[in-house]
Amino acid sequence: MPDGGRFTAGARLAVTTFTVLPVRAGRVDRDTGGVAMSLAAGVGAALGAALAGVLLALAAAGAPPLVAGAVTVALAALLTRGLHLDGLADTTDALGSYRSGAAALDIMKKPDVGPFGVAALVLALLVQAAALGALASRPWTATLAAVVTATAAGRLAATWACRRGIPAARPEGLGALVAGTVGPVALAVGTAAVVAVAAAAVPGRPWQGPVAVAAALAASLALTRHVVRRVGGITGDVLGAAIEVTTTLTYVGVALY
């Protein structure tokens, strides 16, 4: 277990990494990076609760489902500075180029977004907005559980991407700070917590939420393995892609009813 100072610093790093909240940065090293990635799902759950509240408020005010879903997705992007979406676009562009190693990493670093990245962004945002619109009509407890599940599962994918044995693609950056820092206990606790919440995401079907989380995480793990083979490790962009892919697929899984 981390000591109090390391835990506090890691919690601050988790909040500043996954949200726009102006938390004062503290100690930043691989130890605190590991704590931050271990707490990622908890930060995602808090973010999901806020998003669910906005979605339910819009639905209660009479907003059309797709409008309510789109506004909620826009708020999610605002509260995360759009960093995960940027990671999805950059990673998709790199993979779509069919290049590997340093050439693929150079594509990830470019500030522009190519056609593969644009397509990935449009599809992810559209699917998320439509799924959220569908979730808004459910009992509020199920809507809350579903949105919390999807946002927490997305950040849990980042935790899994930082498990021991996964290397960093570069000697600097977020990937170098957090790659290989998460142990099996943190993975087990985080996964169990997300699965427990997921059981309440679909009314009358306690199995569907956990199955959706498992399928989404499996897709994210496959993506991570593929990227590691192509570029030699993970980067901050890869973590962002894992988050968005898992969030989107979890939304789809819990929206089916």
Results as ranks from 00 to 15, higher is better:
A89V: 06
L144G: 03
I107S: 04
D31V: 15
L95F: 14
L95K: 05
W140G: 09
G62C: 11
A50T: 13
A134H: 13
A61C: 05
V127R: 02
V54W: 13
A76G: 15
V122N: 05
A63I: 07
A36H: 11
A60G: 15
I107E: 07
A77D: 06
A11K: 01
A68R: 10
A104V: 08
F116L: 12
V67S: 01
L21V: 14
L144S: 05
R81V: 00
L47A: 10
G34Q: 00
G10H: 07
A136C: 09
T16Q: 12
A130Y: 13
G53M: 08
S100D: 13
A74N: 00
L78V: 14
T143C: 08
A63D: 02
A146H: 04
R99P: 05
T17A: 06
D29A: 09
V35M: 00
L85W: 07
S97K: 07
A145G: 05
G101I: 09
L85A: 01
D90M: 04
Q128V: 01
L13A: 08
G33D: 12
A40I: 08
G133T: 05
P65M: 11
T143P: 03
A36R: 12
A41S: 15
T16H: 10
V23G: 04
A76D: 15
G133I: 04
G44P: 10
L21Q: 03
G82T: 02
V118S: 07
A76C: 12
G53Q: 00
L39M: 05
A9V: 06
D90Y: 12
F116T: 10
L95S: 09
G10E: 03
R99N: 06
L58D: 07
A40Q: 11
K110S: 15
A77Y: 05
G117A: 04
D90V: 10
T80H: 00
G69S: 12
A145I: 06
P139L: 05
G26Y: 08
A25E: 09
V127L: 13
W140H: 13
T143I: 01
A94D: 01
G133L: 01
Y98W: 15
L144T: 14
I107N: 06
G133S: 10
V20W: 06
G44F: 11
V127A: 06
L126S: 15
S38P: 08
G87K: 06
T143G: 07
P111G: 04
D90S: 03
D29C: 12
T80N: 02
A59H: 15
G53V: 02
T91M: 00
T72I: 11
L132H: 02
D106C: 07
D90Q: 02
V54C: 14
A74Q: 11
D93S: 07
A94F: 04
A61S: 10
G48E: 02
R30W: 11
T151Y: 13
T8F: 07
D90I: 09
D31R: 14
G26K: 01
T19R: 08
